[in-house]
Design a protein around this nucleic acid. Structure first.
Length: 276
DNA sequence: ATTGCTTCCTGAGCGC
DNA sequence: TGCGCTCAGGAAGCAA
């Protein structure tokens, strides 16, 4: 379940390994993995992605949980890993592809970037660099930017009766938080996940903002959290799972039973004693 | 406008 | 050993 720290770790890996590489083509091994928004959708003829000329990779960025790859031919690859997607760099194209490889980005020097995704929810989308991309336009502030502050969050929580957990998972409010980090943030902020967003005190909003930044920064230092599928670009795991306080735990650091409930279709872990 | 449910998908883990 | 069931979850789409 890659969230901001995991996606950023992948992006950092890409920056160190694929900047200035020339893309020969993209190959799709499972239909639907690559979505091409370049050609006009007039013909029913299947678009062959391998015909597109990308040129060199100029820039790699993260926005929320999206990976953005800009190329010299003014194209933009938007990659979302969803739950089980992985981008793995291989210095040679001679390795046999694994069972769950859905696509690959092939470079002129015979190295390649493999897109592996067991549950097939991940996507690689191709756009012009200046196109308005709906999923990106909708995103809220970056949690580590100065614009994500008490004033901003207060404004967005105002009038929302949904549980604070659901609101923090809403990418239009803050971009990049998922089910693992939201549990850790609310535990550290001592706020119950089921509490209505508009019933938080200013002090609690302050704690949420502060711990959002802190948890994400700590996780970044540990190259993210590996629960099952997440890997860095070099197929290495992150370490932050060793520092989780409530997610997946039976006992919190203060020795209390960790409760489980379902919210927004996912499991919420929280401590009914530490969180109010 | 807001909220919450369903859908997509595969593999792991469990009980029998 | 193997079957069937449940669970994991990001975000789009939809209904209320």
């Amino acid at each position: 379940m890659p969230e901001l720290p995991e996606v950023q770790t992948v992006v950092d890996g890409l920056i160190s390994l694929v900047i200035k590489k020339e893309i020969i083509n993209l190959e799709e091994y499972r239909v639907g993995t690559i979505q091409n928004f370049i050609e006009p959708k007039v013909s029913s003829e299947k678009i062959n992605e391998t015909e597109l000329r990308f040129g060199l990779i100029l820039k790699v960025e993260r926005r929320g949980k999206y990976i953005l790859i800009y190329t010299s031919n003014d194209l933009l690859l938007v990659i979302h890993l969803r739950m089980t997607g992985k981008l793995i760099y291989e210095s040679t194209n001679q390795i046999k592809l694994g069972k769950h490889v859905r696509a690959s980005i092939n470079f002129k020097d015979n190295s390649r970037l493999i897109f592996d995704d067991v549950r097939t929810f991940g996507k690689i989308q191709i756009f012009h660099k200046n196109s308005k991309i709906p999923s990106l336009v909708k995103l809220g502030q970056e949690p580590l930017s100065e614009k994500f502050n008490v004033q901003y969050l207060t404004k967005l929580l105002n009038g929302k009766s949904a549980p604070i957990k659901n609101v923090l998972l809403d990418q239009g409010v803050v971009a990049g938080i998922g089910n693992i980090y939201v549990a850790e943030i609310l535990y550290r902020a001592k706020v119950l996940p089921q509490k209505s967003a508009n019933q938080l005190e200013e002090r609690e909003i302050h704690e949420i903002v502060k711990h959002t930044k802190q948890v994400l920064k700590e996780a970044l230092l540990h190259n993210g959290t590996t629960i099952s599928d997440y890997r860095n670009i070099d197929d290495k795991t992150g370490d932050f799972q060793n520092f989780l306080r409530v997610y997946g735990k039976k006992i919190c650091p203060n020795g209390h039973i960790v409760e489980r409930m379902k919210q927004a279709g996912r499991t919420t872990f929280y401590c009914a004693i530490c969180q109010k």
